[in-house]
């Protein structure tokens, strides 16, 4: 029996069918993250990111803005209140 799925942006995927997901607990995965903070007076780390701007989708690379002043703002998420 085929099951109906709603069309979305995520790519539908398949995989093994099992009653239970067996997790491999034999290896402790230790997440080591060196939380680094930006230093003033040092180069801003370059990046490339996809985005939206006034009706179109764009790709932005920070280093393309050399020669201009840039304000880079991060925020928790779309539709957040503040």
């Amino acid at each position: 029996m085929a099951e109906e799925i709603n069309a979305g942006c995520t790519r539908p995927t398949g995989g093994p069918v099992a009653d239970e997901v067996v997790e491999d607990t034999s290896v402790d995965i230790v997440k080591k993250e060196a939380v680094s903070m930006i230093q003033v007076g040092k180069k801003a780390p370059d990046f490339s990111a996809a985005g939206y701007k006034q009706g179109g989708f764009v790709n932005v690379t920070l280093s393309d803005y050399l020669g201009k002043w840039v304000v880079l703002c991060f925020y928790p998420g779309d539709f957040t209140f503040v």
């Binding site: 930006i38 040092k42 801003a44 050399l66 880079l72 703002c73 503040v82």
Partner: peptide, 16 residues
């Protein structure tokens, strides 16, 4: 999520 970070970057690409 990201916190509310705001970075001021000068024309040389340096964080001020």
């Amino acid at each position: 999520v990201e916190n509310r970070g705001r970075f001021l970057i000068d024309p040389d690409g340096v964080v001020q």
